[in-house]
Nucleic acid binder design. Sequence first.
DNA 1: CGTGGATATATGCATATGCAGCTAATTCCA
DNA 2: TGGAATTAGCTGCATATGCATATATCCACG
Lengths: 154, 154
Amino acid sequence: MDRRPPETPALAELLTGSCYCLATRRASRRLVRLYDAALADHDLTISQLATLAWIRHLRHPTVQRIADLMEMDQSALSRGLMPLERAGLVSSAPDEKDKRKRVLRLTEEGDQRLIAASADWQKAQDEVARQQADIGADVTRLMAGINRLAANDG
Amino acid sequence: MDRRPPETPALAELLTGSCYCLATRRASRRLVRLYDAALADHDLTISQLATLAWIRHLRHPTVQRIADLMEMDQSALSRGLMPLERAGLVSSAPDEKDKRKRVLRLTEEGDQRLIAASADWQKAQDEVARQQADIGADVTRLMAGINRLAANDG
DNA sequence: CGTGGATATATGCATATGCAGCTAATTCCA
DNA sequence: TGGAATTAGCTGCATATGCATATATCCACG
């Protein structure tokens, strides 16, 4: 006899992979594994690479500013910076004009590691595009939809 | 004067949001926040809801089997089960035939919480679909592409 | 009937994330 | 100008994840 309880419509839908949240997270996990592996030689994760890139890009990079740009909680970024500072890739100093803020800066090594790793990031990116040429359009469409959701937030 | 170093093509691409990995992860973070908030009243995360749903669905749910289905590392699921067992929503017993395996089971309360929470999951899912009707197609396309990537793995 | 290889779990270690709450600094306004 | 409201950042707490590794089983083969 089958001891499994009867399915409900909602549970059935959730399990068939049609939950937007679960499906997207799954895709995210796969890609992160792929990109992280591509960057492993540089001892950087894709998240850390992005953080370094933002610090290099901005005129006046602070924790909150980067967190906003990466659309993540400031506390998460704050913690994410720790291994980078520990590794000597990022340094920081309080802002002269606003002592609450912490102004970030890439060290010489941080800059070099970022540049070197970005070449392997490009390889991973190209490889994904090569294997699945439409993915760019797919991701673009998904982000457009997601952005519309966010717009309704406040 | 502008102290920012010159951009490289790769870094420029990475920062403009065209990194498949970062874009997907960002979308994932947003959706997780949204669904987790929708489930907060039930003290469940979207991840925990999925885990409970799989346990309820399978004839013979074990850690590895569910990890495979959710496409995540077995150790991650193993840890994810802890709060569920601690909360009394899931119980387990060693498999009679194969003592290495741990057979999972929903408790009465686990079953009730799952059913109750799935109604709110449906609300979140419907709300997302309502605000962005195309998202289903977007996610489907993305997953199809991602699945093609995975096929090239082994 | 061993024993080596494969399988199922768990743990140590590290990053990734978010929320709540705390402190310091700044800003705004009466 | 002085206190309220806001802003930046941090820390405590909890889950989410993956990799490497240790342990217990199981299984197939000699």
